[in-house]
């Protein structure tokens, strides 16, 4: 082959995203290039560093391509947080489509100017898994919960819960030993972490999701520019809007089997009605105001981002 690209990310190879999204992407690129591109896959941070450094590794060329959680580097890519606001997203396909559109319009040449972004997506609806039944924000009072993101932590605080910071792999141990009372993650991750065996209660929301995380698949800019035009086209054809929707959709599709497995165990899955969810949305409102204020400080029109994201997500939600 002519070109070897190193793809670095933090999960083990058999996890959903590496197996169902990244490998598929890499296989397609290899095939479409007629074998001229080889994508070497380095899971579990094998090339060194901690997950927050993945983005810099792509910028520096330590890896050619990285998959990372944007929220691992708080403060650097603030605009993407608009999708992480509580009760913003509806489903992963619509939100990922909106995310790519807004990325091209607002973030490509600003926050992400140092890398070449191949895909932008969000996971399926995040929900609450806890050792007691949660129906109202008041039920969260005093619980120690691992939050998934900066904004999820802010939301937990608003409800009187104590957000606990721990890496995802530490969650099962934290739950089994009572270091935390619950965690916020999407269904998709629960199977690998054995969450349904550790807690019996799961709380889903109607309409929009409690929270999500934003991801990017990012490539070293010089590496991309250095490719001959025909190989650039192979990368381009496999990246962008369609890939983002595929990635978000595929990741969210893994939610279903994981949810069924929890139900089959006889776990208590509470799906809150629209009215019940409204109470949660009311509690989360101050987060929006705080976020807009923060963005204004950075010279970003936060309200405009919120309005546009809402509009696009609604448009793409069937």
């Amino acid at each position: 082959q002519d070109v070897t690209l190193r793809l670095h990310q933090f999960l083990p190879p058999q996890a959903n995203v590496p197996k169902l999204v990244l490998d598929v992407w890499a296989d397609n690129v290899e095939e479409d290039s007629g074998g001229r591109i080889k994508v070497e896959r380095y899971p579990s941070m094998q090339l060194g560093g901690k997950p927050p450094e993945l983005m810099d590794q792509a910028i520096d060329g330590v890896a050619d391509i990285v998959w990372t959680v944007v929220g691992y580097t708080p403060g650097r890519f603030p605009s993407t947080e608009v999708f992480e606001l509580p009760f913003m997203m509806t489903n992963a396909r619509a939100a990922s489509r909106a995310y790519w559109e807004m990325f091209e319009k607002h973030m490509k040449d600003t926050e992400f100017k140092d890398v070449h972004i191949l895909g932008t997506w969000v996971h399926g609806p995040g929900l609450i898994h806890a050792n007691k039944e949660i129906r109202t924000p008041a039920d969260m009072e005093g619980l120690k919960i691992r939050g998934g993101s900066r904004l999820a932590n802010a939301l937990l605080e608003k409800m009187g819960a104590t957000p606990v910071g721990m890496p995802v792999p530490a969650v099962p141990e934290g739950l089994s030993k009572g270091v935390i009372d619950g965690t916020t993650i999407p269904w998709e991750v629960t199977a690998a972490l054995k969450i349904p065996e550790l807690v019996d209660n799961h709380t889903e929301f109607s309409g929009n999701a409690l929270y999500v995380l934003t991801f990017v698949l990012a490539m070293n800019k010089d590496r991309y520019e250095s490719l001959p035009d025909d190989l650039k086209k192979v990368i381009d054809d496999n990246s962008g809007l369609e890939f983002s929707v595929f990635a978000g959709g595929t990741q969210a599709d893994s939610d279903g089997p994981a949810r069924e497995a929890a139900a089959a165990r006889g776990n208590n899955i509470v799906t809150l009605t629209e009215e019940e969810t409204a109470e949660w949305r009311a509690v989360s409102q101050p987060i929006y105001d705080e976020w807009v204020a923060e963005m204004n400080e950075r010279g970003i029109d936060g309200q405009a981002l919120i309005d546009e994201a809402r509009m696009l997500i609604d448009k793409y939600t069937e």
Binding site: G48, G49, K50, E53, D56, Q57, D60, G61, V62
Partner: peptide
């Protein structure tokens, strides 16, 4: 491995020790 280019190595060193 980087074909005799020291940049990747130097960049990697920016955060490797502290991390």
């Amino acid at each position: 491995a980087m074909g005799g280019n020291p940049n990747v190595l130097l960049n990697k060193l920016k955060s490797e020790t502290y991390t």
